[in-house]
């Protein structure tokens, strides 16, 4: 058995190109995409269930977030491309094997729909703003469009529910498809990122809600999602330990390596366990300012994306 293995050739500067090609824009986008997916999913779901009056923040008020989040996310994605003038090449074909192609097309459909959803509700949810937007009243085209959107809310919601789920899963599948990065290359990343996205979406709805009943419901939903997320993280770690040598080395970054504090401290403890405990305490009947767990969940979700992007690119095949 080989007890020592050094590979010197790959460490020569200027010979081995830098492999860290993805930086903060990708992590930011993965977070914003998940957040938008979560909010759109809840908005469409509660609308279809006929609960739009009971849960106004989820269906109406929070609809301001997805268009902004997706727009910033898309700009971040294009900013990270090194050949951005050729971005249109994404839309000359659909490649069924490439997760990024799926993502590009889903974003192409979800982003306009998120704007339409907001457009259908901005008068109701943001009454003060409406009077300032005099331009909208003068353009007949926009008025017609608004009437069309309001008449077709149910159809848009039916399209949004599956697409929001695909968008949420895609942020994880994107990474898990890369077999050369052992930390990413596990099938649980898709459900994990979806759960995390839904959880940050629920947290954002809690932040915007002024209705006690709605805050309680989304507190419960968030608690359930956090428990699922913790279980998925446990499965992910178990999967690495049951994996091959490259995965055993990859998990060292999270368990004992340089990302341990970020992962277990900021993501697992502050981003999941503490908010779950606070939400549980609140369910039992004590008064907890709900803003605290909601903000912790959102920060935890953001840090999680950064940890996975940064750590994943340090892992590779060794031969």
């Amino acid at each position: 058995m080989q007890e020592e293995l050094f590979t010197s050739g790959r460490n020569i500067p200027n010979i081995d190109p830098s492999l860290e090609v993805w930086h903060w824009p990708i992590a930011l986008y993965l977070f914003l995409g998940g957040l938008a997916a979560g909010i759109l999913f809840f908005a469409a779901l509660f609308y279809v269930l006929g609960k739009d009056k009971e849960y106004p923040a989820a269906v109406k008020k929070a609809s301001i977030i997805p268009p902004i989040a997706l727009s910033i996310g898309l700009l971040a994605l294009v900013y990270d491309l090194t050949h951005p003038l050729y971005t249109w090449q994404l839309y000359t074909s659909f490649r069924i094997e490439s997760p990024m192609s799926w993502g590009a097309w889903v974003l192409m459909i979800v982003t306009p729909l998120s704007f339409l959803w907001l457009f259908g509700y901005y008068r109701e949810a943001y009454a003060g703003v409406e009077s300032k937007l005099k331009l909208f009243k003068r353009l007949r085209f926009l008025n017609n469009l608004e009437r069309f959107v309001i008449a077709n809310r149910r159809n848009i919601a039916y399209v949004l529910i599956p697409l929001a789920l695909v968008l949420g899963v895609y942020t994880g599948i994107l990474l898990s498809a890369f077999n050369a990065r052992p930390l990413w290359n596990n099938a649980i990343l898709g459900p994990l990122f979806l759960t995390s996205g839904l959880s940050t979406g629920a947290a954002a709805i809690i932040l915007l809600s002024k209705n006690v009943k709605e805050k309680h419901l989304f507190g419960k939903i968030d608690l359930g999602l956090i428990i699922i997320e913790l279980a998925l993280i446990a499965h992910m770690i178990m999967g690495y330990y049951a994996g091959s040598q490259v995965q055993l080395e990859a998990v060292q970054l999270l368990v004992g390596g340089e990302f341990t504090l970020m992962f277990f401290g900021f993501v697992v403890l502050l981003g999941l366990l503490v908010p779950a405990t606070l939400e549980l305490i609140e369910l039992v009947g004590y008064r907890v300012p709900v803003i605290v767990p909601a903000i912790l969940v959102i920060i935890g979700g953001l840090v999680f994306r950064f940890v996975m992007i940064e750590a994943g690119q340090l892992t590779r095949y060794l031969y």
């Binding site: 190109p17 492999l19 090609v21 993805w22 990270d80 090449q89 890369f178 050369a180 590779r316 095949y317």
Partner: peptide
């Protein structure tokens, strides 16, 4: 090529560069 880096992340041989 749009320079997204997906191929770089997927190559076990690190044979590609931007």
């Amino acid at each position: 090529c749009i320079g997204c880096g997906a191929c770089i992340q997927s190559c076990p041989y690190d044979a590609r560069y931007q």
